[in-house]
């Protein structure tokens, strides 16, 4: 009994102490309303970011009948996975995904190899005119894709490359090089020169110093640039649409566009299902590499 009353007393006294410690009146309400404001802002962000995706997912499980008869914001009463089956087969999703992956992965690999090599030559190796060549290469950042598309179309046609995926890959490589060389050069610049000199003194040749010393030293940079290039190529529509001479060469972007045109605004379910497949597949990929993206972006080497 004595113990419990003591406990009550101490609880009361701590509460009193808390009350006296807390700032009087105004400051407290300011703090409280600030907290509410922060919560409200975060709530709005959550709704704006998540609701469209949630709505997409629920809509993809509706039947055509539900689309026409019920308000679009309602959640389907029963789940219909048939949309996914028809989207998968009629929208050529498997071949679009394969095309996108072939084009994107090979472009990224070639861009990184050529870009890292050129940046190494321009930043680490010593020869006359290297500043001029770097300027010449980086100047390509100013050239919009529209300016080069039409001539490239004719060139690829004359070389007999149309009806393959090569025009896309070659174009992406050419367009990706200026930014890649520029960024890789800044990464090489941030490596202490003594490391390359040590490699040379230890008897490594130029190639050895590049592959065993320079490349491993800038691997974070390679990863960051690779990610930037990956998403810009993967999400490109202009080049993919220009060199899309037949449906079997469609990337995901072109496929989705044609899917919409092909069915007009009739087959809502499969359309939502097709968008869902693409978005949620990327969500899974994103959750895996998100840490590296954030680390790459916040590592500080690509700052303007």
């Amino acid at each position: 009994m004595a113990i419990s009353s003591g406990r009550v007393e101490s609880a009361v006294s701590t509460r009193r102490a808390r009350v006296t410690r807390a700032r009087p009146g105004r400051a407290r309400t300011v703090q409280l309303s600030r907290k509410t404001l922060t919560r409200a802002i975060i709530g709005i962000i959550l709704v704006v970011e998540i609701y469209p995706l949630f709505w997409l997912l629920t809509s993809s499980l509706k039947t055509q009948n539900a689309f026409v008869s019920q308000p679009l914001w309602t959640i389907p009463s029963k789940l219909d996975f048939g949309n996914y089956a028809s989207a998968w087969t009629t929208a050529h999703i498997p071949s679009d995904v394969i095309n996108s992956l072939i084009v994107t992965v090979s472009s990224v690999v070639v861009i990184l190899l050529l870009g890292a090599g050129a940046a190494f030559a321009l930043e680490v190796l010593v020869f006359k005119g290297r500043g001029g060549i770097l300027f010449f290469l980086v100047g390509g950042l100013m050239v919009p894709a529209q300016l080069v598309l039409l001539p490239l179309f004719e060139i690829y046609f004359k070389l007999g490359l149309n009806n393959t995926l090569l025009p896309m890959i070659i174009t992406y490589v050419g367009q990706g090089l200026p930014l890649t060389v520029f960024l890789m050069a800044t990464y090489f610049r941030s490596v202490p020169r003594e490391l390359f000199e040590a490699c040379a003194i230890d008897g490594g040749g130029t190639y050895r110093c590049f592959f065993s010393v320079a490349l491993p030293l800038v691997r974070n940079g390679i990863f960051t640039v690779g990610m930037l290039v990956f998403f810009s190529v993967f999400n490109d529509l202009l080049v993919a649409l220009t060199f899309n001479s037949k449906p079997s060469l469609s990337t995901i972007q072109v496929g989705l566009l044609n899917f919409n045109g092909q069915y007009g605004s009739v087959a809502y379910g499969p359309l939502f299902a097709a968008i869902s497949i693409v978005i949620f597949a990327l969500l899974i990929l994103y959750l895996f590499i998100n840490k590296q993206i954030m680390r790459g972006l916040t590592s500080g080497a690509v700052k303007g």
């Binding site: 090599g117 050129a118 190796l125 290469l137 050419g174 200026p178 060389v181 040379a200 040749g205 590049f210």
Partner: peptide, 24 residues
């Protein structure tokens, strides 16, 4: 010899330059 190796410079620089000139 290592940093001014002309053949190596061409090896690293030429492919990127060729693609850039051809595509842009």
């Amino acid at each position: 010899q290592v940093f001014g190796n002309r053949r190596a410079i061409a090896f690293f620089l030429a492919p990127a330059l060729l693609v850039y000139i051809g595509v842009i």
